[in-house]
Amino acid sequence: AQVHVDGVTYDFDNPEEAEKFAREMAKRKGGTVEVKNDQWHVE
């Protein structure tokens, strides 16, 4: 699973880890999390 944050792509073998990371980053940035094509996007 991939997580996109500020133009940087992070690869995770485990989708749950990807989701956890995406939500944590969004919380830190005060942003939102979107899922597109099985990829997490932190805005």
Rank of each mutant, 00 (worst) to 15 (best):
E16R: 10
V33M: 06
N37E: 09
D11C: 15
T32H: 12
D38M: 12
G30W: 06
E43G: 12
Q2N: 04
V42F: 05
E19V: 04
E17Y: 03
V5A: 06
E16L: 10
Q39F: 06
R23F: 10
E34T: 15
E16H: 10
G7P: 01
W40M: 06
N14T: 14
A18S: 01
G30A: 06
P15T: 09
E19F: 07
D38E: 10
V3S: 01
H41E: 06
V3E: 01
E34S: 15
E17L: 08
W40D: 04
A1V: 13
K36E: 09
A26Q: 06
N14V: 05
G31L: 11
T9M: 08
E34P: 04
V8E: 07
D6I: 02
K36Y: 13
T32S: 09
E16Q: 10
T9Y: 07
D11V: 14
H4M: 12
Q2F: 08
P15E: 10
D11G: 08
E19Y: 09
V35G: 10
K36L: 12
A1P: 12
E17S: 07
P15Q: 10
A18H: 00
Y10S: 00
E17A: 10
T32L: 09
T32R: 13
E16D: 11
K27H: 10
H41V: 13
G30Q: 07
D11S: 14
K20V: 08
D13Y: 05
K27A: 14
R28S: 11
H41N: 06
Q39Y: 06
P15W: 13
H41W: 15
T32F: 12
P15K: 12
R28T: 09
G7S: 03
E24Q: 08
N37Q: 09
E17C: 15
V42H: 04
H41G: 03
G31A: 09
F21D: 00
V3G: 01
A18R: 02
D13V: 10
E16S: 11
G7R: 02
Q2W: 10
D11E: 13
A26V: 05
D6F: 12
T9V: 14
G31D: 05
N37C: 15
D13H: 07
F21Q: 01
D38I: 06
E24W: 11
V35N: 10
K29I: 15
P15M: 12
E17D: 13
A22N: 01
V42K: 04
E19W: 08
R28E: 11
H41M: 09
V8Y: 11
V35D: 04
Q2R: 14
Q2D: 02
E24H: 06
D6H: 07
H4T: 13
P15H: 12
Y10P: 00
E17I: 06
E16I: 11
Y10A: 00
G30R: 07
V35R: 14
K36G: 06
M25E: 08
T9H: 05
V33G: 03
E16A: 12
A22R: 06
V42D: 03
V8R: 12
N37A: 09
A22M: 04
Y10D: 00
E16K: 10
A26E: 03
T9Q: 08
T9R: 11
H4V: 15
E43V: 15
Q2H: 10
W40L: 08
K20R: 12
M25T: 06
Y10G: 00
W40H: 05
N37P: 05
Q39G: 15
D6N: 11
E34I: 15
W40K: 04
V3Q: 01
F12N: 00
D6T: 02
Q39H: 11
E34R: 15
